[in-house]
Write a protein that binds this DNA or RNA. Sequence first.
DNA 1: CTGGCTGCAAAGCATTTGCATGACA
DNA 2: TGTCATGCAAATGCTTTGCAGCCAG
Lengths: 170, 170
Amino acid sequence: MTGSEKKAPRVSASKVETAASEERPEKRLFYEYLRRKGLKRTAQRDLILETFLESEKHITSEELYRKVRERDPTVGFTTVYRTLKLLTECGIARSMQLGDRYTHYERGFDEQHHDHLICIECGGVTEFFSQQLENIQAEVVRRHGFQMVDHSLRIWGICRECQRKRGSWR
Amino acid sequence: MTGSEKKAPRVSASKVETAASEERPEKRLFYEYLRRKGLKRTAQRDLILETFLESEKHITSEELYRKVRERDPTVGFTTVYRTLKLLTECGIARSMQLGDRYTHYERGFDEQHHDHLICIECGGVTEFFSQQLENIQAEVVRRHGFQMVDHSLRIWGICRECQRKRGSWR
DNA sequence: CTGGCTGCAAAGCATTTGCATGACA
DNA sequence: TGTCATGCAAATGCTTTGCAGCCAG
């Protein structure tokens, strides 16, 4: 998984690249969020956001930390952790529990809501979306007088691939 | 919550009450499970199971531990924890994450599958079941060639009661 | 008797925080 | 120039395990 990615050129941590900051809408959103909260834009936060945006769909704080350190080994885990929290607060990241002991994060800004199929054999995660499912959930919530803030549907099982492998073992 | 329950009479920990063991199907199931696995029936396991069956719908290992200790203060947390694991393995209990840092357990034997509405204000949990939801999930799973083992839908939001309270604050 | 069970204490481990130093605005 | 950010180390807190003595079968 990690082996196939292109090694990004080493980035200077002490220089904020303003030119590149407009590429992705998440960046504008993040800087705006920092401004509103009276927080500061730093090279570390820039690097962490950028790395997060370039990562695979689902990532743990530990994994993101490792990727960030490939570019700047001086960044600490604490900063990655705290930045991930900021990103979650402003909607750029979304956190979730997939059943292992880690908190996983996925990009949450440019993506519509979706649910997850988790393979308990290989750990693979497949996303899916069903408008029908959403509609029924909304209906359930309405019936209970609930004001929905978030929802999460996770389905664990054996993916097609792993079923095939299993079959050939016996 | 805990205040309203009836204080159960102190049970001798050194005596297994065989007569009471048939009351609940879960008990037979548990003893059968222990036998199959070559494990032993003990007074602690009996007490823990019984206490679990008499508890509220959703309980943490810590809460169960406290309840067990009301009846027998000599029981250790480790034993409660390990017994809860056994109960989960044989289907009498079901474990779940509600969003706080605790693992919650609910009775999983005599209950049909259901999903949860979790109030982020008061922490209350409401169960619901929708056959439509189940059907669509089954359809999604089938379409992906997945073999479903478990699934969990959690909806977070503000319950009716808390919305009312909120409204009257402002 | 013997292997499983118990309870204590301690370890694991992801997450979170305290604090002195350093950087942004 | 002051406030916020950083990174190290340490604390947290739920969970899990090692181990010596105990008990069911």
